[in-house]
Design a binder for these strands. Structure first.
Length: 871
RNA sequence: GGGCGUAUAGCUCAGUUGGUUAGAGCGUCACGUUGACAUCGUGAAGGUCACAGAUUCGAGUUCUGUUACGCCCACCA
């Protein structure tokens, strides 16, 4: 006996120790190695001050499975970790803490001091998520950990910004953008989420100047009326031809605005008249450009009304709305109010309704960049798994607008543009600029910072050393696969693709492996506000990281959401325990100290399990290569539990009890160490713990080689025969169960079979697993004097003498049921075989298989009928 | 308005390029302390693969249409 193992597996006593050992041995570290092929994954960097949630757990588990697999396959496998500075999210957190703890705002501290506080915060909490990733077993190369605002990434950001600016792909302009009045910053289109809300349509009269006439417009946002600079109608709308070019008097304001004609207006919608507010509506902005309309912005940054609002100045936009409606009503200008459901855009960080506003911002010109990004997905250079997400991606990329990249925040990469305080000259430069190249005046850097996603977009190459042409960059880029959720395809995946193409001239990754969202047991999204989130760390404490990982990898297909509940984790935990106990059994019976497989001394069941294992290795490799992780893991589960434990261990027990059976020990260990290796990417800890207790040569399973199919281990014939016996054993158990015969009632077993040698070599487990006392080979049934239950298999028939225990009626019913079943199947097979189309067109192999089935059914049917007659 | 997904056992889900008797986990029922494991074992019950057509020798799987639910994008003010 090598080592005494406890009866149940206790992950908590194992995991930290093993992880520490891996780290110390340096197994996670990858170097450029010309003798190996590279395999690279860059982590989707979690927010630096965030905490691990189930979505991370899924994402990291999938990546770790892939990276461990490839590492064992002999690749130089780099999983590059790091964190994201997460502009708005982090700034909001620190501001909140500042407010709660010190009653201060960031403005009280000033920019420099505030940023220092955020760095302090990052130092304090930045390690937390990294520790949590380690608890999961993530085999990241921690020596290469990066941060989106570290020196290298910042250098890359400046390089890219200046580069794009010089190419004319970054520009500054006064455009309409999404504004969050709570975060006080511009947002990109992708950062706005739309929800349908019940609102109103207010119908308002706009009087025609010097006339009794008026037009009626309908609006959902009456407060923007303050910034109207025209009313538009369709050019061919006959109702309004006479008003074209005339002036209207803007209610509540008194300003005069023209009636203009523009194709944008739909004649049949509403009244056919549209108020035009270029400063507060994207469509109106376009109309304004076409007609040279004045742009009057009526709101401040916090969405209160500014000086253009007259008496409404200082009011919040909704207060102003209320007040204006009341005033309009009083003046008899409010015609009616309609209920109206419409989509309202909200800030994806704070949920505040965004305000479209014209503002001077920085943009990335998307059209030229999108071209290449579209090409590489269309021509398959980059593939999405599952493929349907390439449609989502292409649809977005083909309709993408320019990307607003400036944010009015303090935490982030400050835009490398400098303005002369004297002459207004602007310089964009990688280096700090202090004096104006034109007039020598003092230069001041742009206040705005960049969208967080601007730096994340460079992640696959900035983390490898770009813009320097490092060995790492040459070797590990392009990366192999990107693993992420479908919810950030637009934010991140798309932007990495065009950035990689533009700056590296090569795709950032070859595959995008997309997973879904982890939901609660009722299918709801896990969220803080619902309080239905499950903490992965609590699950790890309770059930172990392996159980959690196994749960996340099982029953989940790429791109689909999954439900998470503890019963599933329990099942995974039970599986770990099953493996644990199987290993206890093997170790208890071990006398060998080295695995030496001698293919010449094998029993049928040995060949059978080796053959089954061989097929498993083939399947798992194929599944993993095709990103079918869920399928790979369910095959492993089935093999380990339902094949190795339920059958092979049971078959081999008599041999082990009988004495030192080296062949059995070798096969037990060979197959066990093999399936542990196959399972290791999914359940790294328990597989390592057991592996090291087995008589293996590798010092760690992490660096052992991944099993692959070997022709020498394919024993098709023995496999098929043992398979038949398994069926037979099941049938015997079934018969006994239906006769209500208790397991302890052991009887003889008579066997009628032509292949006597083979049956003899299996006699031990046949006897044991059919609850028999001994097995007797007979030449004919006639010789038996005892009353028997007959069970038939292919080429074999067994008789169980149960004497008076036999319930004749029950046996009759059982055999009749069996007969009906065989008849049904026989019918099915025959109808296939008599179908000329099938025989002519189906593959020959299939036709032969059907014929064999027919024979088998016929043979069995004859035996069953014979038994029925004898009753 | 456009696009996508899902619909398979009581529940949650797998099901590869069409081809044995459609599977698993959990739950249910019966039996069981057999020398690794009750976090277990043995056996069983449970399915018109949403509906209607089409293609095919053959459809859970492919195509068309319908229904229900979900998601994404666009935004007629």
């Amino acid at each position: 006996m090598r080592k005494e193992l406890s009866k149940t597996y206790d992950p908590s006593s194992v995991e930290d120790r093993i992880y520490k050992n891996w780290e110390e041995k340096g197994y996670f570290h990858a170097e450029p190695d010309s003798k190996k092929e590279p395999y690279t994954i860059v982590i989707p960097p979690p927010n630096v001050t965030g905490q691990l949630h189930m979505g991370h757990a899924l994402d990291e588990t999938l990546q770790d499975i892939l990276i461990r697999y490839k590492r064992m396959k002999g690749f130089s496998a780099l999983w590059l970790p790091g964190t994201d500075h997460a502009g708005i999210a982090t700034q909001i957190k620190v501001e909140e803490a500042l407010r709660v703890n010190e009653g201060l705002t960031r403005y009280d501290l000033g920019r420099d001091e505030f940023i220092k506080r955020v760095w302090d915060w990052k130092e304090k909490f930045g390690d937390r998520i990294i520790h949590q990733l380690k608890k999961l077993g993530s085999s990241c190369d921690w020596e290469r950990e990066r941060f989106t605002m570290d020196e290298g990434c910042s250098k890359a950001v400046k390089e890219v910004f200046v580069n794009l600016y010089e190419k004319g792909l970054i520009y500054k302009g006064n455009r309409i953008i999404n504004w969050c009045p709570h975060c006080i910053t511009a947002l990109s289109d992708a950062e706005v989420e739309y929800t349908e809300q019940q609102g109103h349509f207010w119908h308002i009269k706009y009087p025609v100047k010097d006339s009794d006439e008026f037009v009626i417009i309908a609006t959902t946002r009456p407060e923007t009326l303050l910034g109207d600079t025209a009313v538009a109608v369709h050019p061919e709308d006959e109702r309004y031809q006479h008003l074209l070019g005339k002036m209207l008097v803007l209610p509540l304001v008194g300003r005069e605005i023209p009636v203009i004609a523009d194709e944008y207006v739909e004649k049949d919608f509403g009244t056919g008249c549209v108020k035009i507010t270029p400063a507060h509506d994207p469509n109106d902005f376009e109309v304004g450009l076409r007609h040279n309309l004045e742009v009057i912005k009526v709101m401040n940054d916090d969405a209160t009304i500014n000086h253009y609002g007259g008496k409404y100045e200082g009011m919040d936009r909704y207060e102003a709305r209320k007040a204006m409606i009341a005033d309009l009503q009083e003046q008899g200008l409010l015609v009616k109010i309609e209920e109206h459901a419409h989509n309202v855009g909200q800030c994806y960080r704070c949920g505040t309704t965004v305000e479209p506003i014209t503002s001077s911002q920085w943009f990335v010109k998307m059209e030229p960049l999108a071209k290449e990004a579209i090409r590489v997905v269309k021509d398959g250079t980059i593939s999405f798994v599952p493929d349907r997400f390439s449609k989502t991606y292409l649809n977005w990329m083909e309709n993408v607008h320019d990307w607003c990249i400036s944010r009015q925040l303090w935490w982030g990469h400050r835009i490398p543009a400098y303005y002369c305080e004297a002459c207004g000259e602007m310089v964009v430069s990688k280096e700090d600029v202090h004096t104006c190249p034109k007039c020598g005046g003092k230069m001041k850097q742009e206040d705005d910072v960049l969208d967080t996603w601007f730096s994340s977009a460079l992640w696959p190459f900035s983390t490898l050393g770009w813009p320097d042409n490092t060995e790492e960059l040459k070797y590990f880029y392009p990366t192999s696969v990107l693993v992420t959720g479908y919810d950030i395809i637009f934010f991140w995946v798309a932007r990495m693709i065009f950035s990689g193409m533009e700056h590296m001239g090569q795709e950032p990754f070859k595959h995008v492996f997309i997973h879904g969202i982890v939901r609660d047991s009722q299918g709801r999204k896990m969220s803080k506000s619902l309080g239905n989130g499950i903490d992965p760390l609590e699950i790890i404490d309770q059930y172990g990281a392996d159980a959690l990982r196994f749960t996340l990898a099982t029953g989940n297909s790429p791109g689909n959401d999954m439900r998470f509940y503890t019963e599933r984790v329990e099942a995974s935990r039970n599986f770990a325990n099953k493996i644990w106990n199987a290993s206890r059994f093997v170790l208890m019976n071990l006398t060998i100290d080295k695995i030496e497989l001698d293919l010449n001394t094998l029993e049928p069941e040995d060949k059978w399990i080796l053959s089954k294992f061989n097929a498993l290795a083939k399947d798992v490799n194929e599944n993993l290569d095709k990103f079918e992780l869920g399928m790979a893991v369910s095959k492993l589960y089935d093999f380990i539990w339902n094949v190795y434990c339920d059958w092979y261990i049971e078959m081999v027990k008599p041999r082990l009890m009988a004495g030192e059976d080296k062949a059995a020990q070798n096969v037990l260990c060979y197959v066990m160490s093999g399936f542990l290796k196959l399972l290791h990417p999914f359940m790294p800890f328990i597989t390592e713990e057991i592996f090291q207790a087995l008589p293996v040569e590798d010092e760690s399973i992490m660096i052992a080689s991944f099993p692959e199919y070997q022709e020498a281990l394919n024993f098709a014939e023995a496999e098929a025969k043992v398979e038949t016996y398994i069926e037979l054993i099941t049938s015997v158990r079934n018969a006994r169960s239906e006769m209500n015969v208790p397991p302890k009632n052991k009887t003889k077993l008579y066997v009628l079979c032509e292949d006597k040698d083979f049956v003899s070599s299996c006699s031990e487990f046949l006897t044991k697993l059919t609850y028999s006392s001994e097995m007797i080979l007979v030449d004919s049934k006639d010789a038996l004097s005892e009353k028997c239950v007959n069970v038939v298999g292919q080429g074999i028939e067994v008789m169980i003498p149960l004497n008076e225990l036999i319930d004749k009626e029950k046996e009759f019913a059982r055999l009749t049921k069996e007969k009906e079943f065989l008849l049904k199947e026989l019918n099915l097979v025959r109808s296939k075989l008599s179908n000329k189309g099938f025989v002519d067109k189906a593959p020959e192999k299939l036709v032969q298989a059907e014929k064999a089935k027919e024979q088998s059914f016929l043979e069995k049917l004859a035996k069953v009928e014979e038994s029925l007659n004898e009753l």
